[in-house]
Design a protein around this nucleic acid. Structure first.
Length: 465
DNA sequence: TCTGGGGTCCTTCAACGT
DNA sequence: TCTGACGTTGAAGGACCC
């Protein structure tokens, strides 16, 4: 589902169909998560700083992501994929590999095509969005095929044609070749996939190391034996915040680290895990990033323990000059069980007092930080003053369902429309208008979304080999 | 003018045990 | 007791992906 977030927003908001839509962080340090195709025409693309996007496309609609909505759509699509095969490997909310052979639904070119086309129409019917399908004999090739299929298409790479297809492509086409590796290869005179194959494995390993060089060489020969793996175990859990303004105050930094540690533990517990290694991440004013980690005797999911470890790690970091980002993570994950929890609680109770004191910390977030309404939607965070995030759904007692077009200076502008309605009218209210309340997103379908340019896809299907 | 958040994997180096 | 070889683990950083 390419341009997934933007497409979902266009489907939800009739007035945005056919218009440039940019979804991402709206704070001063936000970046673009997804740009609609209309916005891409202005040169806006993902990972671009929001300020730059606004200069390129000043009239685009700028919206904050709504992961809750995207998750619902994603689940619908993944459900369709699981009807095809038990082997479905989600890569993200909007992309997955499917092993069609394991599902027994396709065994040759014609049947694979038929399955792909039916899938695309099912996605359209169920979600109202379009998806693209790439069909090939390996994950790498299926992914490349799906990129070529976008938007709203299907592409099959026939067995035997792979090398000829890949040869002239840029090395950047291959998975694992980003800006750094691309540069590295270019300096060695290698810019196409064919040139990787010609250089030979030894040369690649010399340039990039054993693992990277070896796998890249294989990919250049169109060899990719990686299986489609359903159910990947996660290996770490982390949270991080970038602050609108660098933080200098050491006390505030300690408070933020404690808060992040608590949030991280909440996630850890929600995932049913505990972990052994605590990692502190600090990005300084000059964008240099450093990490400090500490491995405990055994796994924990105790907020006090994680908070204290993170605080210890912070003591070894010089933050004069200011920090722009702080993060806390836990790796070395283990499943926790009820017994572990009890054992831990008991051990603590016996282990005397010391934990308590730190608890006082950080009720105040004294400064400028607090990016964009803590949007992450997990727990209803601390009750902040009423904030109307751009793009979020609202309900007005008199005018019904709508979404926030913008807010500021005590006013909030709302457009009243629903996925199935015609483009709606705009009205402005005071931000504390009691008639106005936040609302849940409405389902997109039932909304006969006709030819809007929605995102396409990356439903990538590998027919394992 | 800048550069998010949540992950994964790899490399290098140091410490430690056998 | 000292030394070297080797494997494992931990710490830190970098690249990459969506």
């Amino acid at each position: 589902m390419d341009a997934f977030y933007a497409s979902a927003e266009q489907a939800a908001k009739p007035s945005l169909r056919g218009k440039a839509v940019v979804v991402g962080g709206l704070g001063p340090r936000g970046v673009v998560a997804t740009a609609s195709y209309e916005a891409r025409r202005f040169g806006v693309h993902s990972a671009m700083p929001m300020g730059q996007a606004r200069r390129l496309a000043p009239n685009a609609a700028y919206l904050v992501p709504r992961f809750g909505l995207y998750r619902v759509i994603s689940e619908q699509v993944m459900g369709l994929l699981r009807e095809l095969s038990p082997l479905v490997e989600p890569l993200s909310l909007d992309e997955a590999f499917v092993d069609l052979e394991a599902g027994g639904v396709a065994d040759d070119e014609a049947s694979a095509r038929a399955v792909g086309e039916r899938l695309r129409s099912d996605i359209r019917a169920v979600t109202g969005l379009t998806g693209s399908v790439g069909l090939a004999a390996s994950k790498m090739l299926a992914k490349i095929a799906s990129e070529e299929a976008k938007p709203d298409g299907l592409r099959l790479i026939a067995p035997g044609t792979e090398r000829a297809l890949l040869g002239p492509m840029s090395v950047r086409t291959l998975p694992g070749v980003g800006p750094a590796t691309g540069d590295h290869l270019r300096r060695a005179g290698i810019t196409t996939v064919e040139e990787i194959a010609e250089a030979g494995e030894d040369e690649l390993v010399r340039l990039l190391g054993k693992a990277h060089g070896g796998s890249l060489y294989a990919m250049a020969l169109a060899l990719d034996e990686r299986p489609v793996v359903a159910e990947r175990e996660s290996k770490s859990v982390s949270v991080e915040d970038t602050y609108d303004v660098d933080i200098h105050d050491r006390v505030r930094i300690r408070g933020e680290v404690a808060r992040l540690a608590d949030r991280c533990v909440q996630r850890l517990r929600a995932a049913g895990h505990s972990g052994r290694t605590i990692v502190l991440k600090v990005r300084r004013f000059d964008f240099s990033t450093l990490t400090r980690s500490e491995t405990l005797r055994g796994p924990t999911d105790d907020p006090g323990v994680v908070r204290e470890a993170a605080a210890r790690l912070l003591e070894s970091v010089d933050t004069t000059g200011g920090v722009r980002l702080l993060g806390v993570g836990v790796s070395g994950l283990a499943d926790y069980t009820q017994e572990d929890l009890f054992a831990q609680a008991q051990a603590e109770a016996e282990a005397v007092e010391p934990v308590g004191e730190a608890d006082e910390g950080a009720p105040g977030q004294a400064g400028a930080g607090e990016p964009e309404g803590g949007s992450r939607a997990e727990e209803p965070a601390v009750p902040v003053e009423r904030r109307w995030a751009a793009g979020h759904d609202v309900r007005h007692a008199e005018y019904g369902h709508g979404w926030v077009q913008g807010s500021g200076l005590g006013r909030v502008t709302v457009r009243f429309e629903t996925p199935g309605s015609a483009p709606g009218r705009v009205r402005t209210f005071r931000t504390d208008d009691p008639e106005l309340t936040p609302a849940e997103p409405l389902p997109l379908v039932g909304a006969g979304s006709c030819g809007e340019e929605v995102g396409a896809a990356g439903v990538v299907t590998g027919a394992g080999g």
